[in-house]
Amino acid sequence: MTSPPALVRTVLGDVRPEDLGVCDAHDHLFFASPVLPGQELCDAAAAAAELTAFREQGGGCVVQWTPYGLGRRAADLPRISRDTGVHVVAATGLHQAAHYAPELPAELRKRPAEVFVAELTTGIGTTGVRAGLIKVAGGFHALDAHARWTMTAAAEAHHATGAPIAVHLELGTGALDVLDLLCGELGVPAHRVILGHLNRSPDPVVQREAAASGAYLAFDGPSRAHHATDWRMPEAMRALADAGFGERLLLGGDTTTAAARSVAGGPGMPYLLRRVRPRLEHALGERLVARILTENAGRAFAVARPS
C-alpha cells in the first residue's frame, strides 16, 4: 500500500513542501509568557506588517513555534496569512513549566498527547486551524521531569500523526539528551526532530553529532545580544556542510518580543533575509543557502502521515 504524500500543514491547509518558498523555520507572530512580562507579541496589525516586511524580502513561509497556552492567536493566523500571501505553520505542544503560571490547564495535565493530536488533526480550540508541528522544550544542560513528560506526550502524538517535533534547547544545551530520549527511548525517527538554538552553544562536536543522528539543526535567533550567533554562525554552518550535513540545516529568526520586530525598529523577521542570508551566501554559496531556506525546510516540516 502506498503511503500518502508528505505535506506541510499550514493554517490555510496542506501544501506541497516545494510550494513553501523561502522559509523562516522558527519565529513568532504571537507570543505571551509570564517569563517576558510587558513584552507580549499580541498586536495582529503589527504581526501582519511584520509578515509583509518578510515577504518583501522574498519570504514565503513562517513557522510559528508558539505552543499551547502562550497566546498563539490561532483564529487570527489564517486571515494574516491570506492577506499577506505568506504561508504560516502553527504549533501545538508545551514550553517549559516556567511559562505557565500558576500551572497547566487540567486538560493538559491529564491527557497532553490527546490534546496535541486533536490540535494536529481537528484544530486548535474551535478555530478549525490545525497545527503543523509539536513544540517542546528542554532545560539548561538537562531534562527535568516536565520536559520528559512533555516529550513523552509529543512522541505519542508524533507516532499518531507523523507531525515533526521542534525542540527549544535552553541556551543551546542538552541536544544529545533530547535525542537520547526522543529517538532512543521513545522511538521518534531523528529526521522528524528539529533542534532549535544549537547556535547559542556553539560546540562543533555536539553540533556534528546531532546532525549525524539525522536530526535537523535550526540556526535561529540571529542578532541577539550576548548570543554567540552572528559571527560564529557562518563558520559553524560551513563546517557542518563540509562534513556532509548541509541537508540537515535550517534558518530562523525567533522574534519573541514586540521591540524586536522590524516594524518597531528591531531586526525582526526581514533581518534573516536582508542581512543573514547574504552573509551566509558568502560562506556557503548561494545554492546551499537557497536549499537550506527552501528544500530543507520543506522536508523538515512535512507531516509524514502514517499509512
Rank of each mutant, 00 (worst) to 15 (best):
L104D: 11
G214L: 05
E209I: 07
V86C: 13
A283V: 00
A304G: 12
V263T: 07
V193E: 05
I292C: 14
G265H: 01
T122C: 11
E209K: 15
Q64S: 15
E119G: 14
V136G: 12
D254W: 04
G187A: 12
R16V: 04
N296A: 03
D43S: 04
R55F: 06
L186V: 03
A49H: 11
D177Y: 09
P204M: 07
L20G: 11
D230M: 07
L240D: 08
A101I: 03
D19H: 12
R79S: 12
G253I: 09
R72P: 07
P189H: 04
L272F: 10
A258F: 03
D14M: 09
W231M: 14
T229C: 10
R275K: 14
L108V: 07
H26C: 09
P222K: 08
I165L: 04
P267H: 06
R248I: 02
V205Q: 14
A211E: 04
C61H: 08
L240K: 09
L250M: 06
G58N: 02
V22L: 06
L143H: 01
R275V: 05
L7H: 15
V63I: 12
L280I: 05
A243T: 03
G93N: 08
R79V: 03
R9Y: 00
H282Q: 15
F30S: 12
R192K: 11
T52H: 15
G266T: 08
G184Y: 02
S81R: 08
P202G: 05
G60K: 14
D144L: 03
G128C: 01
R224D: 01
A53T: 01
L143G: 10
S33V: 03
R275E: 13
D43W: 01
H146L: 03
H159D: 09
P278W: 05
E119D: 15
R111P: 08
V276C: 05
S262T: 06
G71M: 05
G187Y: 05
V205S: 13
M233E: 12
T161W: 13
D43G: 08
I134D: 08
A210L: 04
